[in-house]
Design a protein around this nucleic acid. Structure first.
Length: 295
DNA sequence: TTATTAGCCCAGAACGTAGA
DNA sequence: TCTACGTTCTGGGCTAATAA
């Protein structure tokens, strides 16, 4: 059972803590448990209810009307809403609900609906990554078990691999070769898989080597494939010195290529960027690079 | 070990806004 | 004008980090 603070509920539902307290006081919407020092904390069921209430509220339902409904009635309304809506905010809320319930079927249905409705890129940019950002904060804070994040990332990973598999190969006349890999102890694969998809969709060649790869294991691929670009991600928090050494190492190992480095460590700029490297701050930046600067 | 400080949380009152 | 609802302000308590 997860345990959420009022701040967690704010992050996940977008409802301000004071508003939550007022709703509790005026409508008795929740009766959270308290710590020995009188601090509120909320259960999975409380979170589910608040997610549903916030979704209905965002859709224009008055809080006074929502609180007249039972939990089941609220859930049914949200379900019927989710079947027709393609709004990112609503989808985000429904996804969170599926996550808390570990409801794989509903989760897949929603992902498939969005993939069909708005396509992979919009689904990733508007729903998956914002969602990961939210649950990542809670995971770091210890409010949800890492298992929930794994449940989510594995399902998204499956969808990405299926989308890559279905991709039509259109190699453009000015296509470039990309080599993608993740270094050891770097488990965050979704970003790189998505980059793989983006590169191929823009008419370039891309080889995805996978995760947990020491640099010396891919040197032969480097010699045979001769990539124009090598893309890697540094997200997991490791010592700055280790990051610095890794970056210098790949800069020398792939001296004939341009190195692209993404991930949190790149965002934080915690290392010196070698002359043949470039930081990729987000996917918009990467897409801009693919569409404009690579030719 | 103790004092101080910053950050977060709590609650109540008052206020502002939108709609009937 | 009244009502419903959300926000802001104020003051106090608790906790953890830091300095003395």
């Amino acid at each position: 059972m997860n345990r959420f603070s009022i701040k967690d509920i704010e992050i996940l539902t977008g409802i301000k803590p004071h508003t939550i307290r007022i709703w509790e006081q005026r409508y008795g919407i929740l009766q959270p448990q308290r710590t020995a020092t009188n601090i509120r904390y909320y259960s999975d069921n409380d979170l589910k209810l608040m997610l549903n209430v916030s979704l209905l509220n965002k859709m224009g339902y008055k809080i006074s009307k929502i609180t007249c409904l039972s939990a089941d009635e609220i859930e049914n309304k949200v379900r019927s809403m989710a079947e027709s809506a393609c709004d990112a905010d609503i989808n985000l809320g429904v996804l969170l609900n599926c996550l808390v319930s570990l409801d794989e079927e509903a989760f897949e249905d929603l992902l498939n609906k969005n993939l069909n409705c708005i396509g992979l890129e919009m689904t990733m940019n508007n729903i998956i990554f914002p969602f990961l950002q939210r649950i990542g904060m809670l995971w770091l804070g210890g409010s949800i078990a890492p298992a929930f994040e794994h449940f989510f990332t594995n399902l998204v990973r499956q969808k990405l691999i299926a989308a890559i598999d279905k991709q039509e190969r259109k190699i453009g006349p000015d296509s470039k070769n990309f080599l993608l890999f993740l270094p050891p102890n770097e488990p965050h694969e979704l970003g790189l898989l998505y980059a793989h998809y983006l590169i191929r969709s823009r008419g370039h060649r891309s080889i995805y080597m996978g995760l947990n790869l020491p640099v010396h294991h891919i040197l032969c691929a480097n010699e045979m494939y001769k990539p124009d670009y090598v893309l890697t991600a540094l997200t997991t928090c490791v010592k700055i010195k280790a990051v610095e050494e890794f970056v210098q190492h790949i800069s020398k190992a792939f001296s004939q290529s341009k190195i692209l480095i993404s991930g949190t460590q790149a965002l934080n700029r915690c290392f010196q960027v070698p002359h043949n490297a470039r930081l990729v701050t987000d996917f918009d930046d990467f897409i801009f690079l693919l569409e404009n600067k690579i030719s």
